[in-house]
């Protein structure tokens, strides 16, 4: 019984990680149609930003504050990653809208460049992020342990989704982003500066990748190539969920998370990967546009 409950929690937790890494991509790829292969490296940027914050806190600030560095690291990694995303959009990606194959190659190149920059600055080996002491251990409930770090990531993903939902549906900038992605020409006729909206949207997606990177420092390795571990999962979630909306991404992320943990328990991790991929491919045969497909009024 306790194994069942804790596997359920593990599925939820894996789903929330998937959701965080896919959320930024749901905007850049899902809404804006940029095949952004550098998404994984924006995750890496967030992870290194967290590492740097930790160094700053442990070196220059009193020890009593170290326990709280993580709360500063979250917005910082968002800002750093979104700034880099903004520069990428301004410098390269805006010339490549409507040229998906070119943007695929260009962003792949960017991802290699970003990896090499990280390697030059921080060195090739992994770096260690020390989590604050209060994050050690976990909540004891029903005879199982729910690690605080996983609970934190679960909460973080829910908060991100809520804020993003509010931003895209209730604020005027958010509505503009959606208007531009639904019908660029019409939005532009109505006086929306589509260029500004594009860079804003891309920066937002990049920033969310940064938050994902920040949260991954708690669980996994932090090195120049960590982006490559997550990029495939991120695309998988967005494609399964259906391009164009957040609802599908949420369901896709938790669906894949649950399925992987269930299959992994009985068949091992390698088989879990195979089976999850097979299920997704079969599903896309049945519903080629993903769980939710969005109709737009654009003529494409």
């Amino acid at each position: 019984m306790s194994i069942f409950v804790s596997q359920l929690f593990n599925g939820l937790s894996l789903g929330s990680i998937m959701l965080l890494i896919a959320l930024g991509l749901a905007i850049t790829f899902g809404l804006m149609n940029v095949i952004n292969m550098a998404h994984g490296e924006l995750i890496m940027v967030g992870a290194y930003a967290t590492y740097v914050m930790q160094l700053i806190f442990s070196k220059y600030l009193p020890e009593s504050l170290f326990n709280y560095y993580y709360f500063i690291a979250i917005p910082i990694s968002f800002l750093v990653a979104s700034f880099i995303g903004y520069l990428l959009e301004k410098g390269i990606i805006r010339f490549l809208y409507n040229r998906p194959t070119d943007s695929l190659l260009a962003t792949w190149g960017i991802s290699l460049i970003l990896q090499q920059i990280a390697r030059s600055i921080f060195g090739a080996p992994n770096v260690a992020v020390v989590a604050p002491a209060w994050m050690d251990g976990g909540l004891q409930i029903f005879g199982i342990t729910l690690p605080y770090k996983r609970l934190l990531i679960l909460t973080l993903s829910i908060v991100c989704i809520a804020l993003l939902y509010y931003y895209l549906n209730k604020t005027s900038t958010g509505l503009r982003i959606r208007a531009v992605t639904m019908n660029r020409n019409m939005a532009s006729c109505l006086g929306i500066s589509t260029r500004k909206i594009d860079s804003l949207g891309f920066a937002l997606g990049a920033g969310l990748a940064g938050i994902a990177g920040c949260s991954l420092t708690l669980l996994g390795p932090i090195g120049p190539t960590i982006g490559t571990y997550y990029i495939v999962d991120a695309f998988m979630v967005v494609i399964l969920g259906g391009i164009g909306g957040l609802k599908g991404t949420i369901i896709g992320a938790f669906g894949i998370g649950m399925l992987s943990t269930v299959v992994e328990y009985s068949f091992g991790a390698t088989m879990a990967k195979v089976i999850v991929f097979a299920v997704i491919i079969l599903f896309l045969q049945w519903k080629p546009l993903g769980i939710f497909s969005y109709r737009t009024r654009a003529l494409d």
Binding site: S6, Q7, L14, G220, T270, K273
Partner: peptide, 20 residues
């Protein structure tokens, strides 16, 4: 006896088995 793919990053299920 458990194997995970190279670069695997989620060990919650393996650890659960270990607990059992």
């Amino acid at each position: 006896e458990e194997y995970t793919p190279l670069g695997h990053t989620d060990y919650s299920t393996v650890i659960n088995k270990m607990k059992k």
